[in-house]
Design a protein around this nucleic acid. Structure first.
Length: 595
RNA sequence: UGCCCGAUGGUGUAACGGUAGCACAGCAGACUCUGGAUCUGUUUGUCAUGGUUCAAAUCCAUGUCGGGCAGCCA
């Protein structure tokens, strides 16, 4: 088992600890602020674990906030899925620090030391009983944000600009070339206020005007070249409907949303590093009454054999490469869940990979190790045969059934045992028999012996072929004195293989998943990620399962011995069984065999 | 090419001027009624060049390489 320190440490946690120790804040508050324009993926899981982990370690709070300032890209379907995914991931670990608000609550005005202020109250999971709660929405702050914008205008720090999108682009200059001031830059405060209010009342069409901060068109940081704060968009918003036709930009909305919620540490990914001066400028320009939040950036997750952007994942969904956002091959949280991954595995993964500013590529083996470790401890063992070959046990009578006791989970003695029945005809895996085996092959061969796990040792006496010469049946002798509790139970053979009774087994459909891409870096050297899709990422096969599996419930996970971990699909129809393979067991024989 | 950020074994990550450690992967072995799990051992590393210092992965300088930034996206 991986030995991860109980209290993780990284440069961000160090900063938070120092701030907490300095007494600068009453309570450590972080936030997880996804835009509801897609499903959450494992990269978001890293961020969730960081933000909720910090809140948890400091007995603080982590607000879930929809960063929904762009009505044309967002949808309620996404806000629903995001909530479900966050709750699932955090459940049993950090629910108590999950910050939400009473449904319908808005930011409220107050006065602090004679200065006007606005803030919104949060309720932590630990005090949530009896409340009807919902996430925070940046769009709930549109009224306050509008007020902050007016304040900026009044201070001469923002102006309404008449430049068209193309002109704005041209005037911005380039990273190595200063920009040029907009002709609108020197309007009076009164004129700006009037124009901004008319923008809001719907007097102008999309793109006609913007509100911009007045900073420095010659700044080497292009985000300080009079960035746009508001744009006109006559569009219906998923949360505010048609109440607004101007919408704030990310940079303006984000820092102030953090402030309104009392966020102390605003943790985001590296691409926002160049935005930090703007984040600080905006907060600094408004003379705010309470301590300001602080932005800290870390490297986003890159994982081998997958892509990690919502845009590309959406493309896979839209083009039918996968069946949906929750296709078990997707690196989405919902995909991993449907695949059978436990939330604790993802949390452990986040701990293992750490948090830095180095933009690296994480080996999927780390994730797989976390998934296996978790499932190894939790999953009940069952017997199943995927590629069957028939074995006839010649010394067992037709209709005879021999009860054998099978361990449910060797890692957890409390899980007890169950009974499996040995009959004259059983299925074993085709891989577990070879007529002319290579060296070091331990399984069944003509004249050889192998143990049927939990049952007895069998000896292969005869190989039966069909007209084409293909092996269709093995006739074997079952040494019943080698059963548990029998005199020869201790007899050793080189291998124990899995099996199911051919007469009692239940059929099932099994979906065998493999990585979605054939290359560890699908987009290496600018190549199109769709050109390296793995055509065998899904294989559907029929299998035979031990009868006890007929009662499995959707979402239930098992280890099919020697094969891997499997999860009854959430949408498995009641009268038939559909299992998803979460992950195969490590197979050192495959390595030996491969050379 | 302007600005910002980064660089420690194959991969990811510690060491906060004083013994380069951990995890994953790999390899070898032990054990095993799962070729799983477990256990033991083990290969491999401070981007380069200067400087400061008794002492540098760590501080400074220069260079190299990698990433980010020029949406009315977030």
């Amino acid at each position: 088992m991986p030995s991860t320190p109980a209290v993780p440490s990284d440069f961000i946690r160090d900063i938070v600890s120092e701030d907490a120790a300095s007494g600068r804040h009453r309570l450590v508050v972080t936030r997880f602020p996804p835009e509801p324009n897609g499903y959450l993926h494992i990269g978001h899981a890293k961020s969730i674990c960081l933000n909720f982990g910090i809140a948890r370690e400091n007995n603080g709070r982590c607000n879930l906030r929809m960063d929904d300032t762009n009505p044309t890209k967002e949808d309620v379907e996404y806000v629903e899925s995001i909530q479900a995914d966050v709750r699932w991931l955090v459940s049993g670990w950090a629910d108590h620090v999950l910050g939400l608000k009473p449904r319908g609550a808005h930011a409220e005005a107050s006065t602090i030391h004679g200065r006007p202020d606005h803030s919104i109250a949060a309720i932590r999971g630990s005090e949530a009983a009896g409340h009807d709660l919902e996430p925070f929405f940046a769009s709930d702050y549109f009224p306050q944000l509008f007020g902050f914008a007016e304040r900026l205008i009044e201070k001469g720090l923002a102006y309404v600009c008449d430049l068209s999108p193309e002109e704005t682009d041209r005037y911005r200059g380039a990273p190595d070339r200063p920009g040029q001031e907009s002709p609108s830059r020197h309007r009076t405060v009164a004129e700006n206020l009037d124009l901004f209010r008319r923008m809001r009342s719907g007097e102008f069409p999309d793109g006609a005007r913007t509100l911009r901060a007045k900073i420095d068109m010659a700044s080497p940081n292009v985000w300080l070249r009079d960035p746009i704060l508001y744009r006109i968009r006559h569009a219906t918003h998923h949360h505010t409907g048609d109440a607004w036709c101007i919408y704030p930009m990310y940079d303006f909305a984000h820092c102030l949303s953090d402030y309104l919620e009392g966020v102390t540490h605003s943790i985001c990914t590296l691409e926002f590093e160049v935005h930090r001066p703007l984040y600080d400028w905006l907060l600094g320009a408004l003379d705010l009454a309470r301590p300001l939040p602080r932005q800290i950036e870390f490297a986003r997750l890159n994982l081998g054999y997958t892509v990690m952007s919502k845009r590309k994942l959406l493309q896979l969904v839209n083009e039918g490469v996968v069946t949906g956002w929750d296709d078990p091959r997707m690196p989405t949280i919902s995909g991993l869940r449907r695949r059978g991954v436990l939330p604790g595995s993802l949390r452990e993964f986040a701990l293992q990979i750490g948090v830095t500013k180095f933009n690296g590529l994480t080996d999927v083996a780390v994730l797989e190790k976390c998934i296996r470790d978790d499932l190894n401890r939790a999953a009940l063992r069952r017997l199943a045969v995927i590629q069957p070959i028939k074995v006839v046990l010649t010394n067992i009578a037709p209709g005879e059934s021999i009860a054998c006791e099978a361990t449910n989970n060797p890692e957890d003695p409390a899980s007890g045992t169950r009974t499996v029945h040995l009959t004259r005809e059983v299925w074993i895996e085709q891989d577990d028999f070879m007529e002319v085996p290579p060296p070091k092959y331990f399984r069944l061969r003509p004249g050889g012996e192998v143990r049927l796990k939990y049952a007895c040792i069998i000896r292969c006496d005869e190989v039966v072929r069909d007209a084409t010469g293909a092996v269709v049946e093995l006739r074997c002798f079952a040494d019943l004195t080698t059963r548990t509790g029998q005199p020869n139970a201790g007899r050793k053979v080189k291998a124990a293989i899995h099996w199911v009774s051919a007469t009692l087994a239940v059929p099932a459909t099994i979906r065998l998943y493999d990585r979605l891409f054939t290359e560890e870096e699908p987009e290496k050297d600018g190549r199109d990620f769709k050109s390296v899709l793995n055509p065998h990422s899904l294989r559907v096969v029929q299998a035979w399962l031990e009868p006890s599996l007929a009662g499995a419930t959707p979402g239930e996970r098992f280890q099919f011995e020697r094969l891997g971990y499997f999860c009854l699909d959430a949408s498995s129809p009641p009268q038939s069984l559909v299992f998803n393979r979460t992950i195969a067991l490590k197979d050192s024989w495959a390595k030996t065999k491969g050379e």
